[in-house]
Simulated scan of single mutants.
Amino acid sequence: MTPPLLPQEIAPVTARQVALTDRFLSFRTDRLMRYFLTLRAETDAALAPRLPKAAGQPYPYGRCEEINNHLFARLAERVARPANAMDRAIRDFVAAGGMVRTVWGVLRGRYFQNALQFGGLYVDVSNDTVVVTKPKVEILPIAGSGLVPVRDLAHFRETAALYWGATVYANHLAPSLAPLLPMVSASPGRLLPAFQSACDYMIALMGRDGFQEAEAWLRDGPAPPAEVADALLASLPDDLRPQADGRAEAVAACRLARAEGRAMDNAWRDARVRDYLRAMRARAAA
């Protein structure tokens, strides 16, 4: 039996989705490109003035998630109240059963990337957020896009090393968060140390096997070095810190979460995410 799709997982392209994509969208590729370039320009006007530099580089570098989510929200509003031919074409595609979803994964073996899936089409509206000279929008068949789901923690770590220049450690610093966020990344000179990965896909992936992969990494993975640990612990709320042995407490948190069936407990998941956001706010205020 095929497991259900994870949030933002690339959906299989069925024969029906291919037919709907061909019927409503594929023959309009040039107009689709102009449509999304217009939406992207509007997103840039909204986001560029208020987003700070990422890894020391100005917008749009590193802002694929923000761009993708902002544009997708506005697209939903437009489709609900169509004002032009492309709004109506996308509305009709969805009404006929066409799939539209945000997706996230590893792009061409090297980058984490957010994009949109329209049936059989991959629409990357933040194509210039790694190499800023690339076209802002890319539209391709899903099969030729090079976007694949993150398979496991090893795949995530490999990509983080290539994309961010990151070394990844086990999260022994916030044990209660460790079942969902079992990693700590450090990218000296680029990105601040961070708990990984607070995206919907990775959080759901950790729960799919009852936190067993997270537990194995927390048990066997390297502890963060002192400078990384100090950077994260400096502002971490007291109730999220380890009481004594962070490794043992993180492993125990995975076992308890599995025993209590927390993988399917949305309220528990949301509480852990709120704890993570509280930690991030405390860090920003420090």
Results as ranks from 00 to 15, higher is better:
A41D: 15
A73I: 11
A178P: 06
G246D: 05
L232Y: 03
V106I: 15
M99N: 10
M33A: 05
M264N: 10
V100D: 04
S176W: 06
A15D: 11
A286H: 14
D152H: 00
E260S: 12
Q57D: 15
A267K: 02
S197T: 13
D238E: 08
V251Q: 01
C199D: 15
P224I: 00
L116M: 01
A267M: 01
L39Y: 08
A229S: 02
N171S: 00
P135G: 14
L116P: 00
R110Y: 15
A174S: 11
Q243T: 05
Q117V: 07
C254G: 12
L147R: 04
A234E: 02
R74N: 11
D128Y: 07
A95P: 10
Q117C: 09
W164C: 11
L232S: 03
Y122T: 03
T133N: 08
R269Y: 04
E249D: 05
A83I: 08
A160P: 08
L236V: 03
A55Q: 15
A250Q: 01
L147F: 09
A250R: 01
D124R: 06
D230K: 09
D124I: 06
L277Q: 02
D265H: 02
S26A: 12
E9D: 05
A253E: 04
G56K: 11
T43Q: 05
S176L: 10
L232M: 06
P60A: 11
P188R: 07
R28F: 02
G119C: 10
R274M: 13
S235N: 10
A226M: 12
F24S: 06
A95L: 14
A279R: 04
M202F: 06
A95F: 11
R274S: 14
L153D: 02
E249Y: 04
R241Y: 00
D92E: 15
L107G: 01
A80Q: 13
P7D: 06
F24A: 05
D44F: 15
A170Q: 09
G97P: 00
M202N: 07
V150L: 00
H70S: 09
T14L: 08
H155I: 04
N84F: 00
Q57M: 15
Y169V: 03
H155Q: 10
E215Y: 00
R190P: 04
R283S: 14
F27L: 10
P52H: 05
L116R: 00
E227H: 13
M99K: 12
G210A: 02
L121G: 07
A83Q: 14
A46H: 10
P141I: 05
M33W: 00
E138H: 12
E42M: 11
L25R: 01
G109H: 12
P193E: 04
P237Y: 13
P188E: 09
A229H: 00
G210S: 05
L236E: 02
M280I: 13
L191S: 09
A284D: 14
K134N: 15
P182A: 01
V137E: 14
K53R: 15
D265S: 03
P52G: 07
K136D: 13
P12D: 14
P135L: 15
G189A: 11
I67W: 05
D265K: 01
P224Q: 02
Q212N: 00
A160I: 05
A46Q: 06
V132P: 10
V137N: 15
R272V: 04
Q17T: 09
Q113E: 12
A279K: 04
